[in-house]
Design a protein around this nucleic acid. Structure first.
Lengths: 346, 346
DNA sequence: GTGAAAGCGCTAACAG
DNA sequence: CTGTTAGCGCTTTCAC
């Protein structure tokens, strides 16, 4: 049987109710509730006590409507369910919550269109600020201009755009990639292949650059064909095995831009008869927990997700609270760290 | 240099502006914008066109204040950054977004107090409905009563309470555990130990029951001491190794309530000289992707996280939209599936 | 230190 | 089909 759901019925208590029962004005109640300086300690306490007694809860909509701000922060991420992203989110949530902000989280699912939609929704929802990590596909930033025009703080993290005056939080991907490649070279690899994501995204191009730089510096040689742009989808891991197999020059090193994908590569290559690290040395990226339980354990780049989230949250909240050093806020570069494990060492 | 951040300056356009520039009333504008049936196609189009032209965006606060509803759904989860939870969230987000709902997500971090706080915040934020998966610690449900009293739809998923009239979405943990244990028995295990989380939580007690049931049915014996209550924190995996080592009767089977922890157990036991599955057979729970890349691949119970999220979202939205079969809505039990892999088979 | 009153932008009952 | 109008609950000048 289908029927309409009953609606709330318990009468909500408003500041007027409080005012009436205390014989004061609603304005005084409001001020007391908000710790306005020009209110006597006595009345404030009276109000607070009464409020507590009757279970008063402030109506955010009325308050937001009046104040024209929402105390919520919007977040757009490519995917919720990746170790890295959920860790970042966890950090953002922590500081947001500690500072009395709500979070509205949405995922672009790597689609530019969805990202644009998310952007609209969050704008309409009246978020006070927006935190975003870009979708694979996104190659323009018109949809963010609305926020910039309205001076709604906008911050990119990890997968970022370089928009003037728009702060970003990243790691030094180029340097990290340089170190990863350097490590492989030092381990004796003579033919290192780099497997990465969509080169539209800063993180992947920068890593490619680092890879290239290390190669040039150490060997003087760099072969564009050794940079594989891939969707990093585990289902397509066979393409990598094929690539390795069919290479004329024996491949003995793999620098892969994602731990999860790297781990699948390890598996697939082992199944194809390759020994890791004897035949091929492999280094991943992210320091996903998975890297420690696989066999062999995976050398990787530690990438501080939680910290990135915390910093993103803090920066934007500082910004919102108005106390920010504008000059220095434009970008934060977090430290990464190479973690050497069995997959690159004999 | 520190200074206040500039505030928005672009004039917002309201329905009054639209009304004026079209020489109609604001009510008509409002109706047009909301596709009210009793509005002529002509005016509606006129309004919509104008709205688009001037970049009108509805003010949610005013609308919510007036309608007394927010179009947002609150979610409380123990942790954002677990494979399972982020997958569930991904599912919830998908349907919420498709149906024009926003999501406010918060994490309890397994703490009852934080959960209570989250509960308050979300209530104050005026969520239309609440989706929750309980913290480890939570053992009372007073903090949810507010929602029930106010008839704000409340739904639990995965880690649930049995509150009258409160729908839940779960899997049949007992049956799943039964099957897991049965599988180990059939593989020849004579002394199976169960390692699980806090037995306060339904998911863990139910699994324990299933384990017990299978043992009783097949062997007639059940030993309480073989049920290990553990925090499932990888850092404490040594405790398990110790437990196994010091057992008088040789342990040859392990049913572990969490894949991530199981994987760490596999590693630690291997390091301690045990062969998996030769010495000890191990089965996990969740079908986390990690199970497929570890060596040996881990037998586990497939646990449909994304689907759970989608269903949770759909149920609650159906509820909100008023078209729900109240009688049948009280619980949804999703199908699980045992996935046998190398860790339990010779 | 406190009160009166004018909004904030939208919705919905009522009237026509 | 459209307009008038009274809120929704809170904030914030402007007086006193």
């Amino acid at each position: 049987m289908l029927r309409k759901v009953a609606l709330p019925y318990m009468k909500k208590v408003t500041i007027y109710d409080l005012a009436k029962s205390l014989n004061i004005s609603s304005a005084t109640v409001s001020r007391s509730l908000n710790n306005h300086p020009s209110i006597s300690e006595k009345t404030r306490e009276k109000v607070l006590a009464k409020a507590k007694e009757v279970g008063y809860r402030t109506n955010k909509f009325a308050s937001n409507l009046s104040k024209q701000q929402s105390n919520t922060i919007g977040v757009i991420v490519p995917k919720l369910n990746s170790y890295f992203m959920s860790t970042v989110l966890s950090g953002i949530e922590k500081v947001a919550n500690d500072n009395g902000y709500n979070l509205i989280i949405s995922q672009s699912l790597e689609s530019k269109n969805k990202e644009i939609l998310n952007t609209k929704t969050l704008y309409d929802s009246g978020v006070d600020a927006l935190l975003v990590s870009l979708a694979y596909e996104t190659d323009t930033y018109d949809h963010f201009m609305r926020f910039i025009e309205q001076k709604i703080p906008l911050l990119f993290f990890d997968r970022v755009f370089d928009i003037p005056n728009c702060p970003i939080i990243v790691i030094d991907n180029e340097l990290a990639a340089y170190e990863a490649t350097e490590h492989l070279i030092q381990q004796g690899c003579k033919n290192i292949v780099h497997i990465s994501g969509n080169f539209k995204r800063n993180v992947y191009t920068e890593r490619k650059n680092g890879y290239k730089k290390a190669l040039k510096e150490y060997t003087g040689k760099f072969n564009e064909a050794n940079c594989v742009e891939h969707d990093l989808n585990p289902e397509n891991v066979d393409e990598i095995v094929q690539f390795v197999k069919s290479s004329k020059k024996k491949i003995d090193g793999l620098f892969i831009s994602s731990d999860t994908f790297a781990v699948h590569c390890v598996k697939a290559l082992q199944n194809a008869g390759y020994k890791i690290p004897e035949d091929i040395k492999i280094i991943g990226f992210n320091n996903d927990p998975i890297t420690m339980v696989i066999n062999p354990t995976l050398t990787t780049i530690d990438y501080p997700g939680y910290k990135m989230g915390v910093l993103a949250g803090q920066s934007i909240i500082n910004h919102l609270k108005g106390n920010i050093d504008i000059e220095s806020a434009n970008s934060i570069i977090l430290k990464h760290k190479i973690i050497t494990r069995e997959s690159t060492q004999l």
